[in-house]
Computed example of a mutant assay.
Amino acid sequence: MKTAPLIMGNIKAELPVIQGGMGVGISLGGLAAAVAKEGGVGIISAAQIGFREADFDRNTLEANLRAMKKEYVKARRIAPEGVIGFNIMVAMRHYDAYVRAAIEAGADLIISGAGLPTELPRIAGDAEIKLAPIVSTDKSAQVILKYWDRKYARVPDLLVIEGPQAGGHLGFTKEQLEMYDSEAYDAEILKILDTVKKYEHKYGRKIPVAVAGGIETAAQAAHAFSLGADAVQVASRFVTTEECDADIRYKEAYLKAEREDVVIVKSPVGMPGRAIKNAFMERVMSGEQIPHSPCHGCLHKCRPDEIPYCITDALVHAAKGEVEDALLFCGANAYKADRIETVKEVIDSLLPEKV
């Protein structure tokens, strides 16, 4: 099956592959540019993106906004004609500032989850940037589509459906994660697509949909397209690439992981997430309180004096390759990685009939 380009209004990616945003520091300008240069959609994660800036500990917001610009400029220099955007979590403090920084940088789109981005159209205003909310259930899709329709008289330029096999923070309760096998979640995807069709009919325009979560083979990608998806969003497969911005030791943690090492963990702010079990996670799971740095103001719901560990500290350790002191977020199939590839090899393996 030959795939079609991903078209979002006046923006077109030749290949319907979106590289998922991975923070802290896993998908920066290098990885996003490599994916965009191959014809896919490259995504830079804005989450604590300024962790390498000299003033990150003192002026976290300013460091992050400065780094957003730097990483976007880097990516655009490498892939001048490619489609490049940002992943910005609703749960982040100063969400408005990050959205505006993405717009000012000149990004093509914003993908936004970790909460429903109800106010994203208000913040973006009349900017030409494309807006793509992430949903995980038909209920959340109905909420965001109805809200944007009623309050802003608009629909998303892209909708990302992120399933229970995804990595990092998940948009499901622990009970939902146990309930959704692949067949049950296929039914949920079809419900979401039916909801989308109602708004396509109302607005007389196509709303492209990307399916994400655990996609790591051509067969899985083809299955998503057979359900009616216009694109697939893939993250973990891109971690073990030469172009990924993470330290080689982070990539090697994926290569060394076994199936039983991929577990559901509870983040400091109460959200379930998927990660690789390591010495750090065993300490956390045993109930140990991990000392942390002064608060970097990353997430709205975080209470520094109550958390068992700091998620910024843990994810920065991961990006720097300090893997035994790190939270190693990953997708459900991350353990299947067995070698370092190039971005081109990954895309070719996902879309073998793209040419």
Rank of each mutant, 00 (worst) to 15 (best):
Y199W: 15
V35A: 06
K344F: 08
N333H: 12
R339V: 10
I26D: 04
A218Q: 08
T195L: 09
Y180C: 08
L351V: 02
A229R: 00
A107T: 03
F225S: 05
F172L: 10
M89R: 08
K301C: 10
A210L: 06
I189D: 01
R303E: 11
P80D: 12
Q165F: 14
T60M: 08
M285C: 12
G39H: 01
H169N: 11
G297Q: 03
G30I: 06
A334H: 06
Q176I: 00
N59F: 09
A221N: 03
C295H: 09
K344R: 15
R259V: 06
C310H: 06
K256R: 15
Q289W: 14
L170Q: 06
E162A: 11
E258Y: 13
G29C: 03
L6R: 05
Y147F: 15
P5I: 10
A91D: 06
G228M: 07
E260R: 13
L15K: 14
C302H: 04
D57G: 11
K12T: 15
I311S: 14
V263I: 12
R259P: 12
V234Y: 09
P117V: 06
D186Q: 12
G287Y: 11
I88W: 02
T312W: 13
A67Y: 04
E324D: 15
C298P: 01
A97S: 14
A33K: 00
Y95W: 12
I88F: 02
E322H: 12
K202E: 14
I144S: 09
A235Y: 02
F56S: 04
F56D: 01
Q48M: 13
G39W: 01
V284A: 11
S293V: 08
V323N: 04
G42M: 09
L227Y: 02
A337H: 09
Y95P: 00
G214S: 06
F172I: 04
Y72H: 03
L31I: 04
I340F: 13
A54Y: 07
S226V: 04
K206G: 05
G331R: 12
S27M: 01
V269S: 15
R77H: 13
M285Y: 14
T3D: 14
I144C: 13
D313G: 01
V316Y: 13
A114E: 01
A13R: 04
L120S: 02
D57C: 13
A212W: 00
G113V: 00
F238K: 07
M179D: 11
I129K: 03
A33D: 11
E162P: 09
A326I: 05
A229S: 07
A105G: 05
Y72D: 03
F172R: 01
L120Y: 07
H223C: 09
A47H: 07
D305R: 11
V343D: 07
A54F: 08
R66V: 01
D194T: 12
M271F: 08
A79I: 03
S140Q: 14
E341G: 05
D230T: 06
R283F: 10
H296D: 08
F172G: 08
C302E: 05
L190Y: 05
G297A: 04
S182M: 13
G25P: 03
I26H: 13
E81M: 10
L116H: 05
E306D: 13
